[in-house]
Structures are given as structure tokens and as C-alpha cells.
Simulated scan of single mutants.
Amino acid sequence: MDAWTPEELDQLDRANTIRVAGRRVDGSSRTLVIVWQVVVGGVLYVRSVKGPEGEWYKGVVRHHEGFVSWNGGAARPVVFTADDEHDDAIDAAYLAKYGNGSATRAINSDTAKTTTLRVDPA
């Protein structure tokens, strides 16, 4: 597994949103959708605000492989790994980045936390 460069992590951290998609059986990308993301401890994380029922989440966890795009760039192959080890730090990062509105409370809900994924370059 490759690692994000410091420049990529900085861009991902500063981006308001990114686009993610799972891969199909033939290796092609499903439709990229907008999600919120945070970088914690040099690692990129995403969650499904709809929890396990989120369509993008179901597509991503089917193969645990997919694509990420940010700042209008090309989609980059990635690996998604379930990771609930850092939920408190991830909650704090979402609050710091997006404020304490209803959307942030939803992304930090117990349901959404069940979908915390680490995202690493493939």
C-alpha cells in the first residue's frame, strides 16, 4: 500500500469535500459522490452520514477498493479499511473542520461512526 504525500494530505485536509466511489467487479469506478473527510494523525478518514445504508458506503465496502478525487483532480485508486480505533479524534476533527451544526452532529452520530473508513492510496 502506498502512502499519501505530505502535499496530498495537506490538500485533502484543506479541501471542504472530496468525491469517493467504490469499484465495480470489472475494476471501473462507480459514480463519484461528495463526502466530508478529515485527516487525523496523517491518515484520511471518511464516514457515511446515512450510516451503513448510504449507497456510496455500500458500494465502497463491497470490495474495499475504489477511488477518491479532490479539488477537481483525476480519480485516484484507493483502499478503504474499517477503522474505529480513533473515533474520538475523528469526531473532534469533524467538529473543528465543519462546526457544530446538525450535519456535523449527524456525521458524528453512533450510526455514522459504524462506517468510519481509513482511506489509503492503492
Rank of each mutant, 00 (worst) to 15 (best):
M1F: 02
M1K: 04
D2K: 09
A3K: 13
A3S: 12
W4Q: 03
W4C: 02
W4N: 03
W4I: 04
T5D: 03
T5E: 02
P6D: 13
E8K: 05
D10I: 00
Q11M: 06
Q11K: 09
L12P: 04
D13N: 13
D13Y: 06
N16M: 07
N16H: 11
N16D: 11
N16Y: 07
T17A: 06
I18M: 08
R19Y: 10
R19N: 10
V20S: 02
R23T: 13
R23Y: 03
R24S: 12
V25E: 10
V25S: 14
V25A: 15
D26R: 11
D26I: 13
R30K: 15
T31M: 11
V33R: 14
V33W: 03
V33C: 06
V33Y: 05
I34M: 10
Q37T: 08
V39T: 10
V40W: 08
V40F: 09
G41S: 11
G41C: 08
G42I: 06
G42K: 06
L44R: 05
Y45T: 04
V46P: 02
R47F: 01
R47E: 01
V49N: 09
K50F: 14
K50W: 13
K50M: 14
P52I: 14
P52T: 15
G54N: 09
G54M: 10
G54D: 06
K58D: 02
K58L: 11
G59E: 10
G59S: 13
V60Y: 03
H64P: 00
E65F: 03
G66Y: 04
G66P: 07
G66W: 05
F67V: 00
V68Q: 00
S69A: 15
N71I: 00
A74D: 09
A74R: 01
R76W: 01
R76F: 00
P77H: 03
V78N: 02
V79T: 13
V79C: 04
F80M: 03
T81Y: 02
T81L: 07
D83L: 07
H86T: 05
H86K: 08
D87Y: 06
D87H: 05
D88G: 03
I90A: 07
A92F: 01
A92T: 08
A96V: 06
K97Y: 02
G99S: 00
N100A: 15
G101T: 00
S102N: 10
T104L: 01
A106E: 11
N108H: 08
S109A: 13
S109I: 12
D110M: 09
K113S: 14
T114P: 11
T114I: 11
T115N: 09
T115G: 08
T116Y: 10
R118S: 13
R118Q: 14
V119K: 11
V119H: 12
